[in-house]
Design a protein around this nucleic acid. Structure first.
Lengths: 214, 214
DNA sequence: TCTCGTTTTAAACGTATGTTTGAAACAGTT
DNA sequence: AACTGTTTCAAACATACGTTTAAAACGAGA
């Protein structure tokens, strides 16, 4: 059982430290110290730092995407040709995501921060890895969203989907500091599930906005 | 004139490299090589790498914020107590931003990517610098947005502002690769000004969404 | 032309990083 | 109890980084 514990400790420490400081700013010594294991353990169990980064993503993303794929299949079966409703699709996605951070809801924020880093930080190997590994499920989801928004032009839909993605990743990845700000400014904090609840009407309304500004 | 050229070359190279790879992944040797100057020039002219990072932000942000401040003053004078219109405020912000990348519109994308990095990447010194230096103009803008959306609760407005910020930063910072994707998927690319045009109705509609999802 | 403050240069410094190594500790099997 | 494959460990390795240094090159004013 020693191996399992070491591997898991490393993944836990890496996940947290990466999300706090980024990939390049987090050294293997930081990680192994926090995990309470020897420095060489990372290269022994994962092979390299790059492979460790990918493993951190895979541990979260693989169960999430499997779960999502299953849910999407169920939706498609239930529809039998009818068009899906957009808010339902968004809620299904968010609920699946919240479920994926099964330990604590905080983990979703941590992972969103990682996802943001994956796109902003260099790490070309990571983008390629994520694309190859988890691209298909995303395509399926996109197909359903397309069916749910038949009145949108392909162009508007394309851009608005990315506007939604940006709002989500940015907000949830900064959820910790943002709820702290909210608590300070408004005297009212929120947990991440409440933020998601606030996000959904915003996204749904933005996606269905009229083509031109009023 | 030698100093001016060296300083400007360094800033140009740093701006581009930082936006491509992030701060920690870009070495001073990368920067000075690309700029065609000696390695020591950065420490001579800027003092440290941290100071160079701040200088890159200041070169873009100082003219932009001065311009924005001026524009906001004009709006407030013209209003004389009446409530401002939200789409107008958003367009004013985006037009000012587009104007700030006066050399090429591509520069706005580069800078948005830097702004995203500033928030995701560790760099506590940067957040503090930006807050101290450019916080007040942001507060002024926020006051006008608050006046333009009297029907929103403080809580909803707070969160939706950050949803908007996220959609904007994320999309514009990835504008290069996103327009490439759009070209590939739809056979129709866009420049950054067109993306901004598409963004505004999305944001305005999201901000004014009903409180609960339908 | 000489001078003095500024700028550039090549080289070195100290430190931190990812990775490798070879021996020690361990756990399960015969 | 002895053997075997796996895992841990302390130490070292090579490399890359930001920064410093001291000398050289430069440019404008006397």
């Amino acid at each position: 059982m020693a191996q399992k514990d070491t591997v898991k400790s490393i993944l836990n420490a890496a996940e947290e430290l990466f999300s706090e400081r980024g990939f390049a700013e987090t050294s293997l010594r930081n990680i192994t110290t926090k995990a309470g294991v020897n420095l060489a353990a990372v290269n022994y169990h994962f092979g390299s730092k790059k492979a460790l980064i990918q493993a951190v993503f895979a541990r979260f993303l693989t169960p999430f995407c499997d779960d999502l794929e299953h849910e999407l299949d169920a939706v498609q079966a239930q529809l039998e040709g009818r068009v899906p409703a957009l808010p339902g699709l968004l809620m299904l996605l968010s609920q699946t995501a919240l479920r994926a951070g099964h330990d604590s809801p905080r983990r979703l924020g941590i992972f969103m921060r990682l996802l943001g880093l994956a796109y902003t930080q260099g790490q070309g190997h990571l983008r390629r890895f994520l694309q190859k590994e988890y691209g298909p499920v995303f395509k399926t989801f996109m197909r359903l969203v397309t069916a749910a928004t038949p009145e949108l032009s392909d162009e508007d839909r394309f851009w608005r989907i990315h506007f939604m993605l940006g709002a989500t990743v940015f907000t949830l990845s900064g959820a910790d500091s943002l709820t702290a700000m909210a608590e300070h400014d408004l005297g009212k904090g929120s947990d991440i599930a409440q933020v998601v609840d606030k996000l959904i009407p915003f996204l749904a309304s933005g996606l269905n906005a009229p083509h031109q500004a009023d």
